[in-house]
Design a protein around this nucleic acid. Structure first.
Length: 511
RNA sequence: CGGGGUGUAGCUUAGCUUGGUAGAGCGCCUGGUUUGGGACCAGGAGGUCGCAGGUUCGAAUCCUGUCACCCCGACCA
């Protein structure tokens, strides 16, 4: 039975509740998002997955521009000595750096290619794990006066962090991201920028990826190496774990001191600049998958979907084939004249000569928001058969073609909203306020130790601010503080230490 | 990097204990019938059984090493 997909009840095997990590991998393959490559820890992002990334880029980039940022590009290679400039920073990244030591290959005594011993670099180059240091060195040259500030630059690029345990989109050795790097005249302005960009991420994830997040600050132990303060957005995915979906760092003067970013102030003094950095990566695709996908495949929020509506012409008879195809193209053209979320609706006509079922399931697995079937019978009745991906797979609504066209944008938006509502409902249902150590430990302990079921969630519990408590809980339960939320100032008692606590924090197992 | 597991066709896998030279389902190709929710018939292609040694007349099968992947732990976006 297991090897007869035709008999399977769901398109993805195993189901989420059977084996979540395996489901995740199977889904990525079934939806043709990405695949493992021959290079350990690195992935091939396939066109459908890359299309999602392009949409994320497009939307985020527009938001960066709207907040006054511009794009630039800095080198992939960072001189080793630059990495050493900021003590905490080196320490944080040293264990996961790829290092380039040679600039030429030759043939060795055994007849095989090797890095030419005569071509060793005088200073090794680190493949950027992040670009604070090399951008800092550049900014140091650009900044002389307060008049040169602020600098508000972003770059879209790849970075490399050598990973022990890669998982596609969530943790790969090479990944794509954007990193914003800014310099400001004052601490207040830099802190404001840090918060502003966190808000951009929150808005983006909410309005486009349709995922609700907690926003707040990281505890010291989870902070970016070298940062004074790390802000983050934390989402919950369907196995109830937390995933950090974006971070924004206030770097104080740590990096400007390390890189020599100095300027003359309004009153003629020399001061180090106040810097920030902020990033969001292809991990967001993994977040999207785990937040919305179901046992039949991916479910895409319309605003991020590379194709929002797929039209499947049904051509059972040769006599009607041409007419159906023509009607399909005509419908596509009409839909493309519809505007949704500030752009023409993305429509695709799937003319491939495949069995109707096979074709439908392909698009179900890929998560296209709306599927439309158009056949000879519809030509006579003036209908189209419409199925929403957020509704059961077999549900089908027959609409007059003109009605569908006029309602398409609203339907897409309804799906977008529904996905957000579902994700929020799920998160809220699995977020619990906890006041005792017993309940906390119970919440995060699976019933079946040998094969843990999906359990836990977010726990809102008090914390006295001590690192010992954090470490003990991490050691006992693998649960960490995901963020110290903004604006929650309810004082109480830390259930772990009995000490006073200024506020509740968000605890969870995480990716 | 430590513990556990798995490597047989694109995918899922049988065969391994008890050595005798590889089989299935799905997918793929060709032709035909089909097509409104994972079609059917007929024919066909595709595997140095992860890799390297060893034992043996003979290895997918036994032994050693090695590599990759997955799960758990430490680290992280």
């Amino acid at each position: 039975m297991a090897n007869q997909p035709a008999a399977a009840k769901t398109a993805i095997t195993p189901r989420r509740d059977e084996d979540f990590p395996e489901w995740y991998q199977q889904l990525i393959r079934a939806a043709e998002l990405a695949e493992p490559s021959d290079v350990r820890g690195c992935m091939v992002i396939r066109p459908w997955g890359y299309g999602i990334w392009e949409n994320m880029q497009r939307r985020l980039d527009a938001m960066f521009k709207a907040t006054g940022h511009v794009n630039a590009y800095f080198p992939l290679f960072i001189p080793l000595s630059y990495m050493q400039k900021e003590a905490e920073h080196v320490e944080g990244f040293a264990k996961e750096c790829a290092v380039v030591t040679h600039h030429r290959l030759d043939i060795g005594p055994d007849g095989k290619m090797r890095p030419a011993p005569s071509a060793e670099l005088s200073e090794p180059l680190v493949v950027r794990p992040t670009s604070e240091t090399i951008i800092g060195a550049t900014y140091a040259k650009w900044v002389q006066s307060y008049r040169d500030l602020p600098i508000l630059i972003n770059q879209w690029c790849n970075v490399v962090r050598w990973e022990m345990r890669p998982r596609i989109f969530l943790r790969t050795t090479e990944f794509l991201w954007q990193e914003g790097h800014t310099v400001h005249e004052s601490e207040a302005e830099a802190r404001e920028e840090t918060k502003r960009m966190l808000d951009v991420y929150e808005t983006f994830v909410r309005d486009y990826v349709a995922v609700p997040v907690f926003t707040g600050e990281k505890s010291e132990s989870e902070r970016f190496p070298g940062a004074v303060q790390t802000l983050c957005i934390e989402a919950m995915v369907q196995d109830r774990k937390a995933i950090q979906a974006g971070t924004s760092h206030f770097l104080g003067q740590n990096f400007s001191r390390a890189s020599g970013i100095q300027f003359q102030t309004r009153d003629g003094k020399q001061e180090f600049g106040w810097t920030t950095s902020w990033g969001m990566s292809t991990r967001m695709i993994g977040t999207l998958i785990m937040a919305h996908a179901d046992d039949d495949g991916l479910v895409l929020p319309p605003r991020i979907a590379p194709t929002q509506i797929v039209i499947m012409p049904i051509t059972p008879k040769e006599e009607t084939r041409a007419a159906v195809l023509e009607a399909a193209e005509k419908l596509a053209a009409e839909l493309r004249r519809v505007s949704y979320a500030g752009a023409p609706v993305e429509v695709q006509v799937d003319r491939r000569d495949l069995g109707g079922g096979v074709k439908s399931w392909e698009w179900i697995k890929k998560g296209v928001p709306i599927r439309v079937e158009l056949g000879p019978r519809d030509l006579e009745s003036g209908n189209v058969a419409v199925t929403r991906r957020d509704q059961p797979v077999k549900s089908k609504e027959f609409l007059l073609t003109a009605d569908f066209v006029s309602r398409a944008a609203a339907m897409l938006e309804s799906i977008q909203q529904n996905l957000f509502d579902r994700a929020k409902e799920f998160r809220d249902a699995n977020t619990r306020t906890i006041d005792t150590k017993e309940e906390f430990y119970d919440f995060f302990t699976p019933k079946k130790a040998d094969k843990p079921e999906i359990h836990g969630g977010f726990a809102l519990a008090h914390w006295n601010g001590s690192r010992e408590v954090e470490e003990q809980i991490k050691a006992d339960l693998k649960v960490t503080i995901r963020c110290i939320p903004f604006g929650a100032s309810e004082a109480g008692t830390c259930p772990f230490s009995g000490a006073p606590s200024p506020q509740r924090v968000v605890w969870a197992k995480s990716y």
